[in-house]
Design a protein around this nucleic acid. Sequence first.
DNA 1: TTTATAATTCTACATTTGTAGAATTAAAAT
DNA 2: ATTTTAATTCTACAAATGTAGAATTATAAA
Lengths: 121, 121
Amino acid sequence: MQLSKSEEELMNVLWKQKKAFMKDLLEAYPDPKPANTTIATLLKRMHDKGFIAYKSFGRSREYYPLVKKKAYFSKHVNGLIKNFFDDSPTQFASFFTQETNLSKEELEDLKRLIDHEIKNK
Amino acid sequence: MQLSKSEEELMNVLWKQKKAFMKDLLEAYPDPKPANTTIATLLKRMHDKGFIAYKSFGRSREYYPLVKKKAYFSKHVNGLIKNFFDDSPTQFASFFTQETNLSKEELEDLKRLIDHEIKNK
DNA sequence: TTTATAATTCTACATTTGTAGAATTAAAAT
DNA sequence: ATTTTAATTCTACAAATGTAGAATTATAAA
């Protein structure tokens, strides 16, 4: 089962904070903040879906992710590539380098990174 | 307004075919194919959302995309980068090169491509 | 001309999603 | 001891989504 848009958003906050109480999560939202029951509902659903867990401290709970950001996005990006770029990462990469406005510096960085990856093969 | 998952799927078929009648779209689906009314509903919704248009031929319609795949994904990938990679394409690129299993050859290709981009700046 | 094909419009309905009020409560602060 | 804070559970509900049956029809094929 998948995270929905707004669940993803919350998940991202949690990834950043690593672990957090509801209050901390809520605080991370820009104004106008959602109702705390909204966050509570999302947390419950995310828990049901198996993406997060928590440690209870009396009445409160400290939530933490069960799924790593990397793993999550691996799946996503790979799905994207499979569905829209005919399963060709190269095609996607090509698209990516052309469509995101990378500066010369960023491109240089990226090149270095790729060199590094090549050496590791 | 956004395309939903299954609308995206259909959109992708249409992008591949460039223009198509309902029958052609339906045929592109793997078995078990959805009901044709399902496709009809999706097409109607996609039309309402402004992603496709059609030319009428008597009773039938030849559908075509109003949005280019590139434009569509630009927005998407950029959204992804903004939301999950702190607005840093480099961070995303790094993630991407490490997480998708690119072969040495593909990495070389990618490098060439980046070189090309750099020259264009 | 009868029949088959491909499509259209309408209606329907279960699920999922976004959002939050009401009631309740444990723990913390005063 | 009383009030405030942070959270929880329950309930609710509109909108979006996935899926498709029923009825209807123009066009093409036999």
